[in-house]
């Protein structure tokens, strides 16, 4: 039932993002409630002029208990993503990074070309890359071939909560893959996460679905069970779909 990323074993197949929460306490509580063991953070400028005692997000996440995954959110070029990856490595002391290079601010879809360029360079620099990508089957394979340790196709655009709009492509990506495939972006509610796992994804990465719900702590818990449930159903292998109704009880001893 475990997921292995960068030679580390994770019991939870859910990874959560740390954005959009009301405050850091809510982030912390949602993380706990989700059962996730990995949380992704963005690497950005500090607010200058802040009080030296002002709390930092990192003070709310126990790095001994949780893997903190820096991401390159907000980067639109390979150069920027590489720069942010290096900053993340310096800040968090690890070579694991979530690579995300976006095409534009409007769609927030991945920039395939720049993602590939950045991934190649980061592999050379010794990074272990979990790469956010489109549902492009050929690109997913190429990203694996160049050495990404996990490929993370979107289910639908970032922050839309539209759920899985591309199950055929996701299935094909999963079928081809020798590295973990993690659906990243677009999950809207628990059933979306379950469907992703039933398709055979190795994990789910989500943020807004929890943070933008009315009750993030409760939704975090729902996601925890949704991912477990979907994975168990995948491993159990679902029944075959039949076009005709088949009774559950034996016909043989019926009274009529």
């Amino acid at each position: 039932m475990s997921l292995i990323l960068n030679n580390k074993l994770y019991n939870s197949r859910l990874i959560i993002g740390s954005g959009k929460y009301k405050d850091f306490n809510e982030t912390k509580n949602a993380l706990k409630s989700s059962g996730a063991e990995m949380i992704t953070v963005a690497i950005k400028r500090t607010n200058l002029g802040q009080d030296t005692n002002q709390e930092s997000l990192l003070n709310f996440i126990d790095s001994k208990k949780y893997k903190i995954l820096p991401n390159t959110a907000g980067c639109f070029t390979a150069d920027d993503a590489i720069r942010v990856s290096l900053l993340g490595k310096e800040l968090l002391g690890d070579n694991l990074v979530k690579l995300e290079v976006l095409a534009d601010k409007d769609t927030l879809l991945p920039n395939e070309e720049e993602t590939l360029v950045a991934a190649k360079e980061l592999v050379k620099l010794g990074f272990s890359i979990m790469v956010y990508t489109t549902d492009n089957v050929a690109l997913a394979r190429e990203l694996e071939e160049i050495g990404c340790i996990a490929v993370m196709p979107l289910a639908s655009p970032i922050g839309t909560g539209k759920g899985i709009m591309n199950s055929k492509n996701l299935k094909k990506i999963i079928y081809n893959a020798n590295v973990p495939i993690i659906v990243d972006a677009g999950i809207g509610t628990a059933s979306d996460a379950t469907i992703a796992m039933e398709l055979g994804c190795d994990g789910v990465l989500l943020n807004s679905a929890i943070a933008m719900s009315d009750n993030p702590i409760l939704m975090a818990e729902a996601m925890k069970y949704a991912v477990i449930s979907g994975r168990k159903a995948y491993e159990a292998k679902r029944m075959e779909i039949s076009d005709i109704a088949i009774p559950s009880s034996n016909k043989k001893n019926s009274i009529s």
């Binding site: 954005g19 982030t27 690497i43 907000g74």
Partner: peptide, 10 residues
């Protein structure tokens, strides 16, 4: 100079 930290993000 850039002073960088970790902030919330997915």
């Amino acid at each position: 100079i850039e002073i960088i930290t970790a902030v919330g993000g997915g």
